[in-house]
Each structure stands twice: as C-alpha cells, then as structure tokens.
C-alpha cells in the first residue's frame, strides 16, 4: 500500500535534495573560479587560502586564516545536514517511505557498533560517532569531485582529534581529579613524564594517521598522473600532444586511494574514538565512588 504524498511534502523533499547538492556545486564553482592557471607539471601544495586576517604585525602565527579546507568542510557539513533532513522527512511508526528503511538501517547499525565496542555506559554516543564517521568519509570522498578534501589538511583533522582528546579527558576526570592525577604515576612514579607524553600522543597519532593516509593518497595520485603524462609523451609524442595514457588508469588507483582509503580511515577514526573514550572511563571506580556517596547520603 502506498500512501499519497501531498504537494507540500514533495516541495519540501525537493528543497532538501537541492539544498544537499547546492553546497557541492558551490564548492565546484568556487574551485573553478579560484584555481590559478598552471602550465601543467607536478604541483603539490596545501589548501589555498581565501582570506587572511592579520592580527599582529610581523608574525603569521596568530593570523586568522580562511582556507579551502575549512570552506569545503563547512560545505560537507551542510550537505550532511540536508541529507539527514531528507532521510528523516516523513518518519512514521508504520513505514510508508523507502528512505525510512535506509535511515533505520543506519541508526541500528551504528547503535549495534557502539554498544558492542563501548558498552552500556555510553548509550548516548551513537549520534556523535556517526557524525564523525559521515563527516570524515564524505570529506575524503570530496576528492572524487575534484575538490580539495578537507581531511588532507592537518588543521581540520587535528581539530577533530582535539575534540576527542577533550572527551577522553572529561571521562578520565569523572572519577575525580585526584584519581586522574594518580593515573599518571602508574605503575611507578618515575614514569610520569612518559605517561604525560603518552596522553598527548593519542590525539597527535589520531590526527596524523588520518591526515597522512589521505594526503599520501593525493600525492601518489599526482605523481602517477605526472608519470603517465611523461610516458604518453614518450610513446605517442610524435602523433599527438594529448596525454592518452592518462585516460582511465588514474581512476583505478583512485578507486583505492580515494574511495577505499577514505572510507576505511573514516571507520578507523570512529573506531579509535570509541575505543579511546571507553578505555578512558574507569567504570568500576566510578560506580564504587557513586555507591560510597549514596551510602553517605543514606547515613545522614
């Protein structure tokens, strides 16, 4: 049985779809307008800077920079937002629309993943995990459109890693600051400096793993296409100046470096987020302290 959609419903649907596609189109237009004309060859550079606000003279360290990576990441956020609005539009208890199946599958899978990896203490985490996963995955897949993937900029991935680090510290502090400080003196007090370095190594390694994977993929893609241009010039140079060998072959490598690597890194980033946060929380100690507090209250 298929329910009939009202006109307003369809208009809202179309609005959501258009709004989900519009940011990507805007990114493409911006990319085309701002790309400087290059004479070919190998160019490997970071994200282009659209706007720079100088705060202190003489040093660039404190400047507020709006770069391509930041703009693209905001565009990805907008796309995800409207895609989610589209998927959840017209949710009913009795399923009427096909998209509700998709939405339910996603939610159920993420719920199962989080409860399997984090346990029942973290039942509020699935939205955060799927948000990180979708943001990271779609950001990496942006390379398929020819846009600069935000995940190959360390400042974007570093921001996510700092967010995860804040969450880790929050869950470590749940058992009180004294217990948290004591954790650094384990197993012997001499190891405290190493423990502190290890604490900061977590976000650094998370950021570098994601950024290194995506960036190395794009560097290798550029090198491969440059090599193919050189090779086709060598082979077909007498006939035509078109780089014939560049057709098709880079797409096969892109299959691995852009699609597989991008999705895998999104999964791994989300997985490590879950594992780090759930191991940071000492559930036994937390419930012991809670029980103690309750007993004290009851005695009064």
């Amino acid at each position: 049985m298929k329910a009939k959609k009202s006109v307003g419903f369809i208009i809202l649907d179309v609005f959501y779809i258009v709004m989900a596609i519009l940011p990507l189109a805007f990114g493409l237009v911006l990319d085309i307008l701002t790309t400087p004309k290059s004479g070919g060859g190998v160019t490997i550079a970071g994200a282009r800077i659209y706007y720079e606000l100088e705060l202190f003279e003489g040093t660039r360290f404190f400047n507020i920079i709006i770069s391509e990576a930041q703009v693209n990441s905001v565009l990805v956020i907008l796309t995800i937002l409207f895609a989610c609005l589209f998927l959840t539009h017209g949710l009913k208890e009795k399923i009427e629309l096909k998209r509700q199946h998709l939405a339910e599958i996603i939610v159920e899978k993420v719920d199962a993943l989080v409860s399997e990896n984090m346990g029942r203490d973290f039942s509020g985490f699935p939205p955060f995990i799927i948000a990180i996963m979708a943001l990271s995955g779609l950001s990496s897949l942006l390379a398929l459109l020819g846009l600069y993937p935000p995940t190959s900029d360390i400042s974007i991935v570093g921001g996510w890693a700092i967010l995860v680090f804040a969450l880790i510290t929050y869950y470590k502090l749940k058992c009180g600051p004294i217990y948290y400080a004591k954790g650094f003196l384990q197993p012997v007090f001499i190891l405290a400096p190493i423990n502190i370095i290890g604490e900061f190594a977590t976000p650094v390694s998370m950021a570098f793993r994601h950024y290194g994977n995506i960036m190395s993929g794009s560097v290798i893609s550029v090198l491969i296409s440059a090599f193919l241009a050189w090779a086709s010039n060598l082979v077909f140079g007498a006939i035509t100046s078109l780089p014939i060998l560049q057709v098709g072959l880079p797409a096969i490598f892109s299959l691995y470096f852009d699609i597989f690597s991008g999705c895998l890194q999104a999964f791994i980033f989300a997985m490590l987020t879950m594992l780090n946060i759930s191991t940071a929380f000492d559930a036994d100690e937390y419930y012991r302290r809670k029980k103690k507090k309750l007993e004290k209250k009851l005695k009064k």
């Binding site: 390694s205 570098f208 793993r209 950024y211 290194g212 994977n213 960036m215 190395s216 560097v219 895998l264 890194q265 999964f267 791994i268 997985m271 490590l272």
Partner: peptide, 20 residues
C-alpha cells in the same frame, strides 16, 4: 585485523609525513 593494521601503520605514516 583492519584496526590492528591501521595502528601498526602509524609509525610508517609518521615517517611519510616527515619525508613529505
């Protein structure tokens, strides 16, 4: 295994980032 591989890869990626 994929998780383990990703973590084992980290040192290699550090080297790659330094090389780049």
């Amino acid at each position: 295994m994929i998780m383990g591989c990703a973590i084992a890869e980290t040192t290699g990626l550090y080297a790659l980032v330094i090389a780049i």
